[in-house]
């Protein structure tokens, strides 16, 4: 790592101790526990558990609502990525191109980052409220009677809108910093080689943004999976009923509401594997970024 390091002593262990203890207590132990209980059927009343092998996995994934939830998670994730990345890219390109007012625009567009997902959810609830929400009014004006919280489809649309909206600032910041990282000489060379600004963007600038885009894609998928919990929880007002939920929300529901410890754990483990795969992809990309720069 470093050419020269301090020699062996007890100091590094002391320095690592706080983090390792916390990791052991609040990460390794719970993760191990999740893995263990995913193979057991636990009786919530008597506390005794029987080993059931992969039954929990089979049972929970073959349930109809699991499939529905997985399907929604996929739609939810793809929609967030497309909407949020698309709008953020357009805004970043414009913010990078304007000559005046660059920084006020930048400030106005990024500060929403600071808003907590549940707060965004609350604002969403208001905006889409059947009686008072301006967005519902707008939909009604278009001839669409939105019933968020009642209609599966309408709720899904509202959740996607709010979740994608909340993620725009992050994508905007990264796209803009990626655009600003493109050397000016390269743009000038492109301007000499190619007349059309649009063509220049798609053939020179966008490929140079590819590492940023891939990276953001991973970030957005992670966001859609995990960080939208607050948005969903608030928009459903804690009452999922017949409404769409993501897989992560379902882990929470089955575990805390349904008291189905084994099933919830099995779903956790499946998600763990998904995150693991995603992280590997992410690290591959980071490595590549490092090699390029």
């Amino acid at each position: 790592m470093k050419k020269v390091q301090f020699g062996p002593s007890w100091t590094p262990y002391l320095l690592l101790a706080p983090q390792l203890i916390i990791v052991a207590l609040f990460f390794l132990w719970p993760a191990g526990e999740a893995l263990r209980s995913s193979f057991y059927l636990e009786d919530p009343f008597f506390g005794n558990a029987t080993f059931v092998g992969f039954d929990n996995y089979v049972d929970s994934t073959s349930a109809a609502d699991y499939g529905r939830s997985a399907q929604f998670t996929a739609v939810f994730t793809v929609s967030i990525c497309v909407i949020s990345l698309g709008i953020a890219l357009a805004l970043a390109v414009s913010a990078d191109a304007v000559l005046r007012g660059k920084s006020p625009y930048k400030t106005a567009l990024m500060w929403v980052y600071a808003i907590a997902p549940p707060v965004a959810g609350l604002i969403g609830v208001m905006m889409f409220d059947q009686h008072i929400g301006p967005l519902s009014d707008f939909a009604r004006w278009l001839g669409w009677e939105m019933q968020v919280g009642v209609s599966y489809f309408d709720t899904a649309v509202a959740m996607i809108t709010v979740a994608a909206w909340k993620q725009i600032p992050v994508n905007f910041i990264f796209f803009l910093s990626g655009l600003q990282g493109i050397p000016n000489s390269l743009r000038e060379a492109a301007a000499i080689d190619c007349r059309s600004p649009a063509r220049r963007f798609w053939t020179v600038v966008f490929p140079l943004l590819a590492p940023t885009s891939f990276f953001l894609l991973v970030i957005n998928i992670t966001y859609a999976f995990f960080e939208t919990f607050g948005v969903i929880d608030v928009m459903l007002k804690g009452e999922p009923g017949n409404n769409p939920v993501t897989l992560v929300y379902k882990v929470f529901l089955d575990g805390f509401r349904g008291q189905d410890l084994g099933g919830s754990s099995a779903q956790s483990v499946i998600l763990m594997i998904a995150v693991f795969a995603l992280t590997i992809v992410q690290f591959r990309l980071i490595e590549r970024r490092v090699h390029y720069s």
């Binding site: 990460f27 719970p30 993760a31 526990e33 999740a34 882990v251 956790s268 763990m272």
Partner: peptide
């Protein structure tokens, strides 16, 4: 080893291990 143990925490957001974490606490 220490590095990889710490690194592993990146793989599992709290949301995924929420129930067992709650039980541990």
């Amino acid at each position: 080893l220490a590095f990889w143990v710490i690194f592993a925490t990146l793989l599992l957001p709290l949301e995924v291990r929420i129930l067992p974490s709650y039980e541990v606490v």
